[in-house]
């Protein structure tokens, strides 16, 4: 499924995503009720890694620019475009689900960006998880100090724990799930917002 559909599913489970609209036709841009700056992303289940193919445009500042960029993406990919409010601040984290051949569905948590890519600073638990499991996961990663509030950036651990438990519930209800990447998730002072979501059934 594409990112828009994935985010609709997540919202049903009380998981926060940025305010956004799926644009099928350029004319829909005139009636948008979103606060700039915005992000435009190609929403196609065929394109998993959008950034790699130039399918994401950040920091769109006004309606004219939006029209231009959305048209550009539509022409390039012949696909609907997801337009969302652009959020900033907080700490990037990653939450994912994989289907292990031995243990079945397992959830992953880690800090985003280079912590995941380079240091592989992530931890796994077999699903479903308890609240205690979620707490231990937060405490287990090497970069855990960043979650304690680093250089004035505050993060709600409670919100991250809540997200992990909601993902656990989601997988329990959707046993046909093959995998999920919520990456990045913005962990902020009061909440956690999933900026990008990939779900494979």
């Amino acid at each position: 499924m594409n990112e828009y559909e994935a985010k609709l599913l997540l919202k049903d489970y009380g998981i926060k995503v940025p305010k956004g609209v799926l644009i099928n036709d350029l004319s829909e841009i005139d009636n948008l009720n979103l606060n700039y700056p915005l992000v435009a992303k190609v929403a196609s289940e065929k394109i998993l890694h959008k950034t790699d193919v130039g399918g994401v445009i950040l920091n769109i500042k006004n309606k004219d620019e939006l029209k231009e960029k959305v048209k550009e993406l539509m022409d390039k990919f012949s696909s609907p475009i997801l337009v969302e409010e652009m959020l900033s601040g907080g700490v990037e984290i990653i939450v994912g689900v994989t289907k292990d051949p031995t243990f079945g569905h397992a959830i992953m948590f880690g800090l985003g960006g280079i912590f995941t890519e380079v240091f592989k600073d992530v931890t796994f638990r077999v699903l479903p998880i308890s609240r205690l499991d979620a707490e231990l996961m937060l405490n287990e990663i090497k970069g855990k100090k960043i979650l304690e509030g680093y250089r004035g950036v505050r993060v709600s651990k409670e919100a991250i724990i809540g997200l992990l438990l909601r993902v656990s519930k989601f997988v329990e209800d959707n046993p046909d799930l093959e995998g999920m990447d919520l990456n990045p998730v913005l962990a902020r002072e009061n909440d956690c917002v999933v900026l990008d979501a990939k779900i494979i059934r």
């Binding site: 051949p101 638990r125 995998g179």
Partner: peptide
Amino acid sequence: RTKRGGKAASLHTGALGGSDAVADGAFKQ
């Protein structure tokens, strides 16, 4: 340590979750 196969290997989580990392979590649980 077995390699991850299947569709989910294209995801980040799939690539990072070699069954050893998952086994590690399972043991703790």
